[in-house]
Nucleic acid binder design. Sequence first.
DNA 1: CCGTATCCGAATCGATACTG
DNA 2: CAGTATCGATTCGGATACGG
Lengths: 109, 109
Amino acid sequence: MSAETSLCPTETALDLIGGKWKGMILFYLCKEKKRFNQLMRLVPGISQRMLTKQLRDLESNGIIHRKVYPEVPPKVEYSLTPLGKSLKPVVDALEAWGIQYIGEGGAQD
Amino acid sequence: MSAETSLCPTETALDLIGGKWKGMILFYLCKEKKRFNQLMRLVPGISQRMLTKQLRDLESNGIIHRKVYPEVPPKVEYSLTPLGKSLKPVVDALEAWGIQYIGEGGAQD
DNA sequence: CCGTATCCGAATCGATACTG
DNA sequence: CAGTATCGATTCGGATACGG
């Protein structure tokens, strides 16, 4: 009825990428697939437990794909699914804003 | 060495809008300024405590402005600062994704 | 109308140790 | 290499009551 009751689809998208780490993980996976320890190094300050949790979460939401190579030593690659790739405009907007208003140096409080 | 060490400015932007509610609040404030109880009605399921907290958080990050009218009954209006307005592309991207992949019906779990 | 204060259970998260 | 298990500290978050 009113102009007041608009839809709010931002909730869902933020629900998928809205944690503390998911945006960053997506940011890196947007470029190319990565292995577990690569992500550990790329995402500063994340613990194994957290990274595992975030990856599982993204996977269960159909955003990333987890490919296990049956070999020793174990090797697992994470990549974006088509759904995950569709989030690239969002990640790009996030990145563009960050560069413009924070600067290239990365996160500073 | 450095193909791996890219910058990641998504962290900062998500830090500002990444909570459960901030995206939705921003989404509505993008359109026009709102009063406290308007937001209460717009954001389904949020409590007074939470709304207050989120608004204070956004305010302290310079994203929204809180204008108090010194009158009875009290009247407070929240609006986007220039910095807040600069986040509109991000909110738009979030919204566009939501519409495309979830549908107009709003958030469905 | 627009908040703040307090209580209290639930969820989160870092650190650490262990496994195939 | 890529995780899982467990513990304890911190924070989150709803319900309720109160205040300007």
